[in-house]
Structure formats: structure tokens, C-alpha cells
Amino acid sequence: MEKEARKAPGLLGQAWLILLLAAFFGSSLAGVEIALKPRIERNKRNETFGQIPFLVPGGSSQKSVETRMGGIRVIRVLSDKGDHLGWVLPASGQGFADRIELLVGLDRKAERITGLYVLDQKETPGLGSHIQDKDGFLRGFEGQPADKSLRVVKGRPAPHSGGIRAITGATISSLSVCNIVNRAVRDFRKALAGSEGKD
């Protein structure tokens, strides 16, 4: 008996505080998320529409409309006069550290990528974070063909050949962005072809 009483407390005896705190913190975080999520989503939407003129040249932030095509969320980019110029495709996927959220600009027939923007990322500062360099890594996507998969290459690729120059020290981040773009563009092209077939 004495021996048993002296034994270290069981699992619950040791961990009750952590379990209690985890439940309390978890529900607090859920509350914060419920309260703030609509606002965060609205900020993201505003940022997305603000980027339209840079993603599809000539596109209007005011005139463009959000729509769904084959279950895929996409923005139909219109000019000030209402001409259909292209598409902005929100895409996301796993990066090196956390999810990467991208906006892919496409021309009207989704044959070429017209621009790329990083909406959210938490890659390693100074290495993977270079995926958001507008004059470096992202520039490499402009004008690339959308009908074939892009691939990460070492060194300088031939222009518009489907090759994207990798960021030194951030191979996984570079690959992740390429894969997210490839998958999103492929799915969207399929949906677009399907909807044109129906028309």
C-alpha cells in the first residue's frame, strides 16, 4: 500500500494542467478566429482585387468579377470598357514552412501566364521569402506558356521556355510555388475547356 501511495502520479495527475490549458487556449483561439476571420478574408479580397492591374495588364480592379468555374474560384478580369482580358486564379498549397497563397494571372484563353503574386507566405526569411521578389523570382513566370508544366531549373533558363530559375538556398520553396501554379493552371484549363464545350 505504502509503496503504491509513493508512486509518481499517473498520466492524468501529471498532465491535467496542460490538458486544461490546451482546452482553454484552443477555445479562445476558436473564438478569436470566428471574430476576426471575416475581416481577414475581406482584407485578402481587397488585396486580390488591388493586384488585378498588375497580374493582367489593362485589367480593372472595379470592373472585374469573381465567379466559379467547375467549382474553382476565379476572377474574370475585365478592362475599364468591360472587355474580357483574362483571369486571376487564386491558388494555394504547402510550402517549406507553411501554406503559400498565390494569385496567378492568365490571358483570356488561359494560354499564357501574365503575372504572379504572393498573397501569403511564411517561408524562411532571407531564403524562401525571396519567392515574393517582384523583380526576381516572380518576374520569371510572366509570359510563360500555360499549356505545359513549369519546371525549376538551375541557372538562367531560355525565355518563355517553361523553365523557372530556382532561388539559391530555397529549392523547396521554389519547387512549391511551381507545383502550386502548375496544378492550379491545369485544373483551371480543364474547367475552362469544359465550360467552353458546353457553350
Partner: peptide, 10 residues
């Protein structure tokens, strides 16, 4: 996490 979400929202 609360601070991060707060900054993202406001």
C-alpha cells in the same frame, strides 16, 4: 497566434 491574427485583420 492571437497577435498575428489581430495584425492580419486590423
Amino acid at each position: 497566434t492571437i497577435a498575428d491574427r489581430f495584425l492580419q485583420a486590423f
